[in-house]
Write a protein that binds this DNA or RNA. Structure first.
Lengths: 156, 156
DNA sequence: TGACAGACCATAATATCCCATGTAAACCCA
DNA sequence: TGGGTTTACATGGGATATTATGGTCTGTCA
């Protein structure tokens, strides 16, 4: 199981290239496709990412399920809002020889990413944030958690 | 598993030729038929597209299912309105030497496609839209999804 | 013979590859 | 343990290959 941990801040050069943290790359080293799949997060101002095998798994299962159900019309017509919408926004970003990816402007801009960016491990997936935005977000999250734990007593 | 991702806007020249995005072409590179199968979407003002092997897979599984059910008459007579109708409207569009296809007017016109067009990855299949129409459609879809996520409190 | 589709060729813009370098962390040996 | 050395990583820039796109030519079919 690939898992992504901790956070790294890297530079975005004028060509839009960013080094993917070496730790993340080794987590993906057994994938056939050397690179990542990314799409805009629907709930946060950030980019979500993971390896391609996860993506293919998803598509395969969806197709199998649809066909098993004998729902051939649906296979032709589509109809899964969530997945269809995300696929349209997703990008396949291969590593270059130095382990970098190029962030498409259509993803970087809405996330507020300009010349630096923060890679955030989220276990099975990871995120790419504008450094300031992430700092704030994380700060708020920690505070909220502390609050909850102290008022509610301890809840795993 | 071939999967189509991202969206690309390409020009339609005066002969009706459009470059199929290189990423889509590489996704189809191991197909025997170098080209795509397209037909008008029944649910949206767009064109749906597949690689040929996907379509053959679909038909084969449909046949299997029908025969398993012992529905031999149906196998011979047809009777599945939707699929039969789609097959009739489908076109086989081969790539030219530069990876382009020619959009038949009977498909382009009802989709509102004139001089530019948007290729949309939908995972197992893809679509071809009029750029403005797609922009609007996608915008609405994203908004709806965000809404749903925030009200349901369902995160990622 | 004239319209048309397909093959072929040209080119500008862009993305990808490849090599160089600074820097910081890991290592090693006295 | 500390100083020096080496390695790995992130980053930058120039060269090179792809891609999208437009045009031209040619054979074919009416």
């Amino acid at each position: 199981m690939t898992s992504f941990l901790s956070t790294f801040v890297n530079k975005v050069d004028r060509k839009g290239r960013v080094s993917v943290p070496a730790q993340f790359r080794t987590a993906l080293s057994n994938e056939t496709f050397q690179g990542v799949i990314v799409y805009p997060s629907l709930s946060e101002t950030a980019i979500d990412g993971f390896g391609r095998s996860a993506l293919e798994d998803l598509n395969r299962r969806r197709m199998d399920k649809t066909l098993e159900d004998g729902d051939f019309e649906r296979a032709l017509l589509g109809g899964d809002m969530v997945i269809d919408t995300i696929m349209a926004m997703a990008h396949e970003l291969p590593f270059d020889g130095e382990g970098r990816i190029v962030l498409p402007a259509t993803l970087a801009e809405p996330a507020g990413i300009t010349d630096r960016t923060t890679f955030v491990g989220r276990g099975t997936r990871f995120q790419i944030w504008a450094p300031d935005a992430f700092e704030q977000h994380q700060q708020a999250a920690v505070t909220a958690l502390r609050q909850r734990l102290s008022t509610q007593g301890n809840n795993s």
